[in-house]
């Protein structure tokens, strides 16, 4: 099974990198660009075949290491 973990900043946490990307896009002429937020995508291959178990395991990984839950949230996507 493959897991894709999206780690992004929680709403309300200032993201200066996202802001810089937004400015750069504006400078390139993409006038419609509004707020930009930057995050991380982590792909994990798992030996686990049970989806529910895999989800529990990945959630634990997120809480222990992959995300700093003080400022970040995470979304998990599983593909069998």
């Amino acid at each position: 099974m493959k897991a894709r973990v999206f780690v992004t900043l929680k709403n309300g946490v200032l993201d200066p990198q996202g802001k810089a990307i937004g400015h750069a896009l504006n400078n390139l002429g993409f006038a419609s660009v509004g707020d930009v937020r930057q995050g991380k995508l982590i792909e994990i291959e798992l030996a686990e075949t049970d989806e529910a178990k895999a989800r529990v395991e990945i959630k634990e990984m997120c809480e222990k290491l992959l995300a700093n839950t003080v400022i970040e949230k995470f979304d998990i996507e599983l593909k069998v």
Binding site: V13, Q17, I71
Partner: peptide, 15 residues
Amino acid sequence: ETHMLPGVLMKNAQL
């Protein structure tokens, strides 16, 4: 990161 102290150190505001 080990939560021995509260809060987080993020990227400097001016990058």
